[in-house]
């Protein structure tokens, strides 16, 4: 749902963007002079205001952080302690035991799910970014019949949420014999109109036509110009597409839930919720679900938060600027 939410936003904001082709804003806006507010309001008033505001912000911050904190604490507890000790207090440190249990349960099925999630996300997002790059580049560099129609289709289809066509997609995949296969999850994810739009915007602003002309005069073929030059020039935008596609695949739930019945092919989202469901009858699974959730969140959080610069510039380039 997350990536849908995002793509719709960026799509529909486009008409308000004064110049879609403009370069993305510099990632760090210059710091405003500190005196700006204090000068007018008087130093003391502003400082009091600052303290009050910053203190008030601790409440929503606690709301956002506490559940994650609980997850960390709960991951270190044994099954017994999970139910008998206070939620935010550390009990006997069982994190290592829990990780061993997580890795060995059902012949290490957890790592199989993690491997699947990585396959779906890494291969899926790489292929998606490539398809988006090809399309966006062509829309920006060439003039051809049907180009405007294609742009209209890309924009319009961003309003179609993925989940609404999940069930029909599942029916289609069954007809194609692709249910219970890697391809059944990978292929539908490749249609990513938001990524096409971002690539288009980036290609417009970062691929100078003069350079293409020069390369043509040197006798380079169209595809070589794209692969050798276009991809490199669009790289910032493509990293953004890659990230959003990665996140979309990593979070994907409804389609894999419908399409996959084979445990060996499931991603983490489907596997972990399955454990959560089964933990009603198998109490030990509750702790494994907790630890498994924590382990699954850590890599994606690190990747996502450390690459903020890219996707933030993507949001700005996507025309979300009021």
């Amino acid at each position: 749902m997350a990536s849908d939410t995002l793509s719709v936003t960026a799509a529909t904001t486009m008409p308000d963007a004064p110049e879609p082709g403009a370069a993305p804003r510099a990632p760090k806006p210059p710091k405003r002079p500190r005196g700006a507010t204090t000068f007018v309001n008087g130093d003391r008033v502003s400082r009091v205001g600052m303290v009050i505001t910053t203190a008030a912000l601790l409440i929503p911050t606690a709301y956002f952080l506490v559940p994650v904190l609980w997850l960390v604490v709960a991951s270190t507890k044994s099954t017994g302690d999970l139910f008998s000790t206070p939620g935010f207090a550390f009990a006997d440190f069982h994190l290592w035991d829990n990780l061993v249990a997580l890795s060995t349960y059902d012949d290490g099925i957890y790592w199989r799910w993690a491997f699947n999630s990585v396959i779906y996300s890494v291969i899926g997002s790489a292929l998606t970014a490539f398809v988006c790059a090809l399309t966006g580049y062509a829309l920006a560099v060439y003039r051809f019949r049907g180009r405007n129609v294609l742009i209209g289709i890309v924009l319009g289809s961003m309003l179609i949420p993925g989940t609404v066509i999940a069930q029909p997609t599942y029916v289609l995949l069954v007809n194609l014999g692709l249910n219970n296969t890697y391809w059944g999850i990978l292929l539908p994810a490749l249609v990513f109109p938001f990524g096409v739009l971002l690539s288009f915007i980036y290609a417009q602003s970062s691929v100078p036509i003069e350079l293409i002309e020069a390369a043509r005069l040197d006798g380079a073929g169209e595809f070589r110009i794209f692969a050798g030059m276009g991809l490199r020039l669009m790289s910032t935008g493509l990293v953004t597409v890659l990230l959003f596609a990665f996140l979309g695949s990593w979070n994907s739930y409804l389609l894999p839930l419908l399409v996959l019945t084979d445990q060996e092919l499931m991603p983490l989202t489907v596997g972990l919720t399955g454990w959560s469901q089964a933990s009603i009858t198998i109490p030990g699974l509750q702790v494994l679900t907790v630890v498994g959730s924590l382990v699954s969140v850590i890599p994606i959080a690190i990747v996502f938060l450390s690459l903020q610069r890219y996707w933030k510039s993507g949001l700005t380039a996507g025309g979300v600027r009021g």
Partner: peptide
């Protein structure tokens, strides 16, 4: 931070 936690998780 919560946005980096998958919806299902």
């Amino acid at each position: 931070l919560p946005y980096a936690v998958p919806g299902v998780i």
